[in-house]
Design a protein around this nucleic acid. Structure first.
Lengths: 355, 355
DNA sequence: CTGAAAGCGCTAACAA
DNA sequence: TTGTTAGCGCTTTCAG
């Protein structure tokens, strides 16, 4: 509508033609200099560069990209930003992208599936050269379209049911297995489990790991000790609370499928008058930044979040370079991080004065 | 370089001309239909829309924006994403932007000033229609350039020394004043203060608020109780620790300039064998999501982070609509949120069995 | 080594 | 109500 961009006081941004004129060459030559083309006379190059500097010229991305160049932008779809989880992954993405001189167009779905698919359609449309999806809700809906256009994308911490996408995630099964075995080794036998949303692959894998470990440790799998959460702190609190009120005898440990749920479980335990780790042990999954500064510091299974981001970017960039590259799947190793929220069940009662 | 975009299997994206041809009209007409232009025959409009649907046509943003239309994208510069602070603000930004159908191009400076100014140059260059800067480090460097081009931007939680920018922040002085007075009312007289980076306006204002409250409460301002932090948890930990080791008698309360620093101070206090809030009270500033689930829950001064994001977007959008609009400054009210990390100093010793 | 010219996909006068 | 025609700023042949 009434676009005031030409108001009197406004300085006009320098274009490539301005630079060309000011340095007495053609715009093509300026373009060559700027793109690092080899065969330009040194003196010409110097002159152009000097002019660019003097005029404070910066190329217009849209024009460049329209003209067939690269936009150097990738789309990033995230569920939210209010806990460190996505932030940490993004740190990895950021680092790797900076190296390749790419920028990020961000889409926050706020766990709203329809918004998610809307964005994906829009993103794959021109501006971005590729797409990174962090823990998307229901990828299957739009993944086909993406594949149909042969549009480069990588899923982070989520799996495509058709197994036809590039994905980066962690060894969820093994991580959960180890965590459970660790609790068992501490003497726990009544180990409750708070799942993630079971629509999500990682949640299912962690559940399987938990069950497998129980079996291997000769602990019966009791369905009443398994409650369904959704990776949210609030939900973790609620289900843990009702679990603690319902089950008798009480579990001596709770394994929450992610740190956020674990925080919720900690709150619930405390409200029930239980001391952590003396009365009940709690273990999480992810190792988001907060895990190390809740009190007591949370023992958890570390996902290499930052590294996942980096790897995803590398894969995406490769795919952008060579669109015919087949999908890859990478699962990075998890690692048990022992802090203060789990205690030995044998010693209960004897060692009450831990700080 | 070797752009494989024309590999055999790749479907080509439909352009506006494809749509025009397929519906037997000119591209101009298609453009009109798409932009909601009023005077198009209904049957034509319907036909075009049908074709768009059938071909799965989506407009190319870069072309549209190059041609003088709007890109519907704003740039967002953030310092980092690993704590809830920025995430919460972004939630507000997001909500408001979604309403106006804008997207976000994200730049993470990771507290690196040169990167910051580099980004600002790049951002203001074509693609984005405006710029939101969250807690930028040294805005003065590039703000002039932005203003010179009359490029719309809004600062969030930071102030331009020249007072020539639109800014949204909170009532830092009053918030700090209230927090300090609250501690004084609890009976504390030795109240330590951990500042933010004093290059930042909010940090200075909070320090002033703290000092003013002390004066008004007839408590002497002791410089040895004031230590300089930088809004980072790690630094908060370090300076609080050395403070607690150095000062004698110990302060009975610590006011940290932001929640992150407060978390650091909590860690330090605990390492010094102090119990919170029994032996020492700790109060923060911001009320980021973690504040309510650290243990004990942090008493803090709430900044309406989400609302700040929303207001900033509204201001920016107004500026985009009317570029001649003069800069505005809005300070949203802070609010003391009393939780569990502060105790009364009078009662010390008598009420040791709080949970 | 460099310039001219043809677009990239779209919007916006200006005609018709 | 609709089509024609210029560009937007840049890259990229194709000639020199």
């Amino acid at each position: 509508m009434n676009n005031e961009r030409n108001s009197p006081k406004e300085k006009q941004r320098a274009t490539i033609d301005d630079v060309a004129r000011a340095s007495g060459v053609s715009n093509a030559t300026v373009s060559r200099v700027l793109s690092g083309y080899e065969f330009v006379k040194e003196t010409t190059r110097a002159r152009v560069l000097e002019t660019v500097e003097r005029l404070g010229y910066v190329a217009n991305l849209q024009a460049r990209s329209l003209a067939g160049g690269r936009s150097q932008i990738i789309g990033l779809l995230v569920p939210n930003l209010d806990n460190g989880y996505v932030g940490t992954i993004m740190q990895g993405i950021d680092r790797e992208l900076a190296r390749a001189n790419y920028d990020v167009l961000l889409y926050t779905s706020h766990r709203h599936p329809s918004k998610e698919s809307f964005y994906v359609d829009a993103i794959a449309n021109g501006l971005t050269e590729g797409l990174l999806l962090i823990a998307p809700l229901v990828p299957s809906t739009y993944l086909d379209a993406l594949r149909g256009q042969n549009f480069p994308y990588v899923l982070i911490d989520q799996t495509d049911a058709t197994e036809n996408s590039s994905v980066v995630d962690a060894t969820n099964y093994q991580g959960a297995y180890e965590a459970t075995r660790y609790l068992s080794q501490l003497g726990h036998a009544r180990i409750a489990f708070v799942t993630g949303s079971l629509a999500v692959r990682s949640a299912i894998d962690r559940l399987h790991g938990y069950k497998a470990a129980l079996v291997d440790c000769d602990i019966p799998v009791r369905e009443e000790l398994i409650v369904e959460g959704d990776y949210q702190q609030e939900t973790g609190y609620e289900v843990a609370k009702s679990l603690l009120q319902r089950v008798n005898p009480l579990p001596t440990a709770i394994f929450a499928s992610n740190d956020l749920s674990a925080f919720g479980a900690m709150d619930a335990a405390r409200e029930c008058g239980l001391r952590i780790p003396d009365d009940i042990s709690i273990i999480g999954f992810d190792d988001i930044p907060q895990a190390s500064f809740v009190y007591p510091k949370l023992t958890t299974v570390r996902q290499p979040l930052e590294q996942m981001g980096q790897v995803a970017v590398k894969m995406l960039l490769e795919q952008i370079e060579d669109q015919s590259r087949p999908p890859q799947r990478v699962a990075l190793a998890t690692q048990l991080v022992i802090r203060d929220s789990c205690g030995s069940h044998h010693l209960r009662g004897n060692e009450h004065e831990k700080n």
